[in-house]
Write a protein that binds this DNA or RNA. Structure first.
Lengths: 350, 350
DNA sequence: ACTCACAATGTAAGCGCTTGCATTATAAAA
DNA sequence: TTTTATAATGCAAGCGCTTACATTGTGAGT
């Protein structure tokens, strides 16, 4: 019987994760050579490389990410913090972002902030601690502390989903205000005089605020009193959308068209309208925002604002990649969002 | 003018991330004390703690995760790999999983495999390398190599979304075969003789296979020939569901009821049916699976199988937590999935 | 056969943190 | 005051990896 090995090395059953050293030992080379095999194979002779790789496989070796990051001071990892994963609002954009990154050999870590700024701050810290080389953030709204932290650490980041001339930070997205204004104009074109808005929480969400402003802009231009706009703030879920519509229907004057902060809310509103026996769009018009899949499958299909999800995602990745590579990116990029007319917007009932 | 500092420490503009040592220096204590302030504050005197914390704040210090994991050999991080983030199938379950973990002070890292086993394998490696203490996996289907790796590394993991008596691995979920059989029986109860199935890719997806088997079980029991079931395999997207229905409608005999592998597919099928001028359920019945939000908002609302998303998520977290704490979990847990009748299933046309 | 250049490998110093153990300050007891 | 138990703190050894730099091996040129 063998004496138990001092540090439980080798063939023992309850093996610790194998380390570089284990691989080195087994293949009879130094750890440096093993490391080179993994990171820069071309400098190692064919023969030893084969031997090392075999040992790697046999041992089931996988490098320890933390140790590697510590020694190499880069991680090839980017982070993204999105407000929610519960619905598809950010899914397509994120997908495009991720694909572009993968193409460049970098890994994406995703976190969700549940629309809570303090939580987002924690997530940022956590991603940075985990070595994220760059970050994707949604919207401009966050505390100065957060931005200070980012600056101090020199972490490249880009703000997505918005374009706002008043903000200096590099961003890629569309002008939420302009986009919503476009839609509101379309609504007004249909003769609606009394509008309602089902919005996300406005605080800490510049996109929601800008969309609201967009509606007011349109009303003003058409000589309507923007303060007459009925507003309900709520969460981004279907059932909240339904509730919100119910609330709105109690207000006086009752809106003949309800614009929703996004398609999910609109889907909920549609549901409630149906439940109350209201025909859309004959009795009431409802519009969405984002143009996610759900917009097409509800009936009536939603008139909504089409957001350039994929372009934003891919574009954000490119910006971040450039920043990481030390090129200096100076220009925010503005993308176009367009109104898609489908069936949920009709003429105002007379 | 000051001579440039040797290692660019201190107040320099382009500061590196502050380290424990920087904090220690600034607050006039050793790194050990700073570390203790952060991890085990109670053993440090009030006075020094205050001083240290102030330095931490002033410097914007955040611990380096990799270094910490390296030194402490634990990360309080779990990983989850789900097949897709594009739709909401796993969203609610994951949410519950995450909440339960957060309650226990552990962080969740999520990756998506796009239903590709090789990719999943890479993701597992990556999460483990990043120090995941435990893993959540969906379904049993994966290569022996993958399981070997997990065993060798002694990584606790649980398989979710399935319950299969034939598999020894610890799992939490429902019996997909039984659940789909239940639904199929309901369909047959409505007099349908000719069935179609729009399924996900069967290979590498035990859930999809079991659901298929469930339908066959039901057909056999009712004296129908299971080989008459019309099957289309496709991806889990709305447009794929639509296409698949179109295909199925060309087959002979034309199915009077089409069961879909999940609600997303069913939503697509509904869309296509509408496009082709077919009334659901008068002309054709369509059913879903999963009971995600989408099932209620399409019209007609989907008859589908309600899956215990939240219980699975929370339960999985509890199992994993127990395993991580060294308790040995021996029993898989089986949850119930039930049929929800809504409006998309009707009697067979005569 | 003997340089010399260059390819292949090895040596060893950290990266930023935790933690067992040793040391010192503090306060209660004598 | 001196002793002694105890609370606070410091010291220093790694954790698993990468990478300058040093060393050795190889084949071509003379």
């Amino acid at each position: 019987m063998n004496a138990p090995s001092q540090r439980n090395r080798g063939q023992d059953k309850a093996a610790e994760s194998p380390t570089l050293e284990d691989v080195a030992e087994r293949s009879g080379v130094s750890t440096a050579t093993v490391s080179r095999c993994l990171n820069n194979p071309s400098v190692v002779s064919e023969k030893t490389r084969a031997r090392v790789m075999e040992a790697v496989k046999a041992l089931g070796y996988a490098p320890n990410f933390g140790a590697r990051a510590l020694a190499a001071k880069r991680t090839n990892t980017f982070g993204a913090i999105i407000p929610t994963m519960e619905n598809a609002i950010f899914a397509r954009g994120l997908q495009a972002f991720q694909e572009e990154l993968e193409r460049n050999g970098i890994t994406l870590l995703v976190a969700s902030s549940s629309y809570r700024p303090e939580l987002e701050d924690k997530q940022i810290q956590s991603l940075v601690a985990r070595g994220a080389d760059a970050l994707l953030l949604i919207g401009h709204d966050r505390t100065p502390d957060t931005y200070d932290f980012l600056e101090k650490r020199q972490i490249p980041y880009v703000i997505a989903w918005v374009h706002d001339d008043n903000e200096a930070r590099i961003s890629i997205g569309f002008d939420n205000r302009k986009a919503m204004k476009l839609l509101a104009e379309r609504v007004l074109d249909h003769g609606h005089q009394s509008l309602g808005l089902i919005s996300a929480q406005l605080e800490g969400n510049d996109r929601a605020r800008h969309r609201l402003e967009g509606i007011r802009d349109a009303m003003k231009e058409r000589g309507l009193d923007p303060s007459k706009l009925q507003i309900t703030e709520t969460q981004y879920t279907i059932s909240c959308g339904a509730e919100a519509l119910a609330t709105l229907l109690h207000s006086d004057p009752k809106p003949t068209a309800v614009l929703c902060g996004n398609d999910v809310l609109a889907a909920g509103a549609l549901l409630e309208a149906r439940k109350q026996g209201l025909r859309v769009p004959q009795d009431i018009s409802i519009t969405g925002f984002d143009d996610i899949e759900i917009a097409e499958i509800v009936s009536p299909a939603l008139t909504t604002v089409h957001v350039p999800h994929s372009n934003m995602g891919a574009g954000a990745a490119k910006l971040l990649l450039a920043m990481r590579n030390g090129e200096d990116v100076e220009q925010s990029v503005e993308l176009e969002a367009t109104v898609v007319e489908r069936d949920s917007l009709g003429n105002a009932p007379t």
